[in-house]
Simulated scan of single mutants.
Amino acid sequence: MATVNVYLTFNGNTEEAFNFYKSVFGGEFSYIGRFKDMPVDENCPPLSEEEGNKIMHVSLPISKETVLMASDSTNFSGEVTFGTNMSVSINTATLEEAKHLFDGLSEKGKITMPLEKTFWGAHFGMFTDQFGIHWMVNYDEPQA
């Protein structure tokens, strides 16, 4: 069954914001990665040192069921507009469920990243639905 979490996007201050959230909620980051740690993609322009040090993804479990997640925007992704800097993030139990939810919710919407296998070992995709809501769908492949 799918779980739903909030995904936030910041203009370069994700690390500061999440250190604050961690001080309030407690716990530890389950993941924190920077753009410079990503594999090189020939379709993307090289990142400056400043861009490379921005947060690509951070996860902070805040309860048994809920994970607060975020990333920084980059020159490639564009400036964040506050009020639209949140997405609904769905993690599914199966690839079939991920495909079903992605295809159904993105109908008549705008796909910004097709649901496909990623370098971090998941199937992941993003879109804005026909009502203007930003969504992310993720299925983590079982670890061998």
Rank of each mutant, 00 (worst) to 15 (best):
F35S: 05
F35Q: 08
E16Y: 03
A2H: 05
N13G: 02
G27C: 09
A122I: 08
D103H: 14
S77G: 07
D41F: 05
T14D: 06
E116H: 12
F131G: 07
N53D: 11
P142N: 06
L101T: 08
I90N: 02
L68Q: 05
F29C: 09
N19P: 10
G132K: 00
I90D: 04
L8W: 11
S59W: 11
G83T: 08
E65Q: 01
V80Q: 10
M86W: 02
T14L: 00
A144V: 14
I90L: 09
F18R: 01
Q143S: 07
G52Y: 04
D103A: 13
I55D: 01
V58A: 01
L60N: 02
V80N: 08
Y7N: 14
H100T: 13
S63E: 05
K99E: 10
G125M: 14
N75H: 10
K64D: 13
K64H: 08
E16C: 03
F25I: 06
S23N: 15
F18Q: 00
M136S: 11
V40A: 07
F10M: 11
F35A: 08
V6Y: 04
G83H: 04
Y7P: 07
I55E: 10
G26S: 00
H134P: 15
W120H: 02
G12K: 06
A122W: 04
R34Q: 03
S87D: 13
F102I: 05
M136V: 07
